[in-house]
Design a protein around this nucleic acid. Structure first.
Lengths: 196, 196
DNA sequence: TTCAAAAACTAATAAGCGTTAGTTTTGTAA
DNA sequence: TTACAAAACTAACGCTTATTAGTTTTTGAA
């Protein structure tokens, strides 16, 4: 029986990755040490290498897992019926929930990707570029169907994605506002603005 | 005559800080080494210590300079006349311009502050908290005067500030869209939404 | 109980870090 | 030209880093 206790459906490597996500988020990838990670996991540092290849591999696992989840959701949205406003709203809500429920991993993917090594760095950036392009397409189509104002769609996507990423600051304020109000108000703001 | 050439109005220390901002942005505070900084500045690493006290001091200088600029602008806005929509629009435009014209410093203040040491860390976070509170007050007053929808003002501020911070991704796309279009479309989106 | 594999450990390596000490070079003013 | 201070240098310290090597312990099945 290993000392690193795997959960019911989580392998030992999964446990390490999960703790790494927390550490990378809290201290940043470069400042987080393998010795610290080992301590959190409850083991000596060299023992980690029975499960992983390198520190860098941990960052890769986190970043690409998150990227995959978002890409998969976008696939399902494009496969489903619905007008472009509904699609965009669903995507926004999915981002918000991912931020609230998988904070550590999403944060790391958003902020620490720059420490990825090649060719993973290029891969990751490419995947993100494609994702943004698909969102731009949705907005462009929505402009054609007269659902959206005729504004630069890249600016719109940038604004929306950035606002969503900012939910990382939400973590400290959870108590004061329900996540339902947060989600609804944020969707409404990004779609309809705040002026009367 | 020192080898580190000061500009017309920039002291030698200013030159070091400016290059540090670029490095901290590019590689992250922890990954950026004093030896790298020295190379960019054109000097050996120990020579830097004729001008600065420590690496940490560089981060402090950058973070608090940026914080001061934003606080000063908010002071001037609150001192000036104008309804709350105009105030908010001016603030948004100021953020956008700061992002475009002082990218390195603003980026570092936004992303690397967590590596500040106490008591500077607490100071910085406190200053940011106060800044956010003042923005919330503007929106709350605008709700009372019927300028803004009655949505949670913290969520609004979070959404706006996050969207603005996201302009860091703008840097690569400068060529395709003029910064005037960017500014106008973004202000319009954040105030009035994108739906028709 | 035996045995092989998995998983933990200790010890150590080479590299890089911020920073200090001590010394030499450079620039300027008398 | 001399002399002083500013600013550069080289060398090194003490520490931390990710990672490897080699060894011992633990585990689960035969």
């Amino acid at each position: 029986m290993p000392k690193i206790k795997p959960g019911k459906n989580a392998s030992k490597k999964d446990v390490i990755v999960k703790n790494a996500a927390f550490l990378f988020k809290t201290k940043g990838y470069s400042s987080a040490s393998m010795r610290e990670l080992a301590e959190v996991v409850g083991v000596e540092a060299p023992s980690l290498y029975n499960y992983i290849g390198s520190k860098s591999e941990l960052l890769q696992a986190i970043c690409f897992k998150v990227a995959g989840v978002f890409t998969n959701y976008l696939d399902s949205i494009e496969a489903a019926a619905g007008n472009h406003i509904q699609s965009l709203e669903n995507i926004i809500r999915f981002h918000i929930r991912m931020m609230l429920n998988n904070f550590n991993e999403v944060y790391v993917a958003n902020h620490e990707w720059k420490h990825l090594k090649e060719p993973y760095l290029s891969n990751f950036l490419n995947q993100r570029r494609i994702y943004e392009k698909r969102l731009i397409d949705i907005i462009e189509q929505g402009i054609l169907t007269n659902e959206f104002k005729n504004k630069n769609p890249y600016v719109s996507v940038l604004t929306i994605l950035s606002a969503l990423r900012g939910l990382e600051f939400w973590q400290q304020h959870k108590k004061n506002i329900s996540s339902r109000v947060l989600e609804d108000d944020m969707v409404n703001h990004l779609l309809n603005g705040i002026t009367k």
